[in-house]
């Protein structure tokens, strides 16, 4: 799907995404895929930075990696779920780890949806739209 045939979001306030990944390449990939749909994309390098950003401004969805320095994705989600102001933020976790135990650990931490990398552009648009209540492309 090219930028020309990307389905834009419904009219209304833009949905805000917090993309959390230590790899600049991955953050850029998500931004390039989702911004043309009208999503507002903020980035964080690790879980600690993400917590600060989530507490400072509202988001509609956090897209979170597992392997990160300082605070990994699972630790971030556990902290998120026990922090009253941001406990309900939906979380889409993406990871290269594909074992059942990894997915179970993510669910136990409070992850809403777990996708194994690489996440294709169409899947990323689809699941991001579903989880934010945006129009499905």
């Amino acid at each position: 799907m090219t930028e020309d045939n990307v389905t834009p979001l419904r009219p209304g306030p833009a949905k805000r995404l917090l993309v959390i990944d230590d790899a600049a390449l991955i953050r850029a990939y998500y931004r390039q895929t989702l911004e043309p749909m009208g999503f507002v994309v903020e980035e964080a390098f690790n879980g600690l930075e993400a917590l600060e950003k989530a507490l400072m401004a509202p988001f509609d969805l956090a897209i979170v990696d597992v392997n990160m320095p300082k605070m990994d994705g699972l630790s971030f989600v556990r902290k998120l779920r026990t922090t009253e102001e941001i406990a309900c933020l939906p979380v889409l976790m993406t990871s290269t780890r594909d074992r059942d135990s990894d997915i179970a650990a993510a669910r136990a931490a409070g992850v809403n949806l777990y996708l194994v990398k690489p996440v294709g552009e169409d899947d990323l648009r689809l699941f991001t739209s579903i989880m934010t209540g945006a129009e499905i492309p």
Binding site: N67, P69, D72, S75
Partner: peptide, 11 residues
Amino acid sequence: QDATRRFAAAE
């Protein structure tokens, strides 16, 4: 199995 620890080890 601890993501923070394996990343710290790599660093």
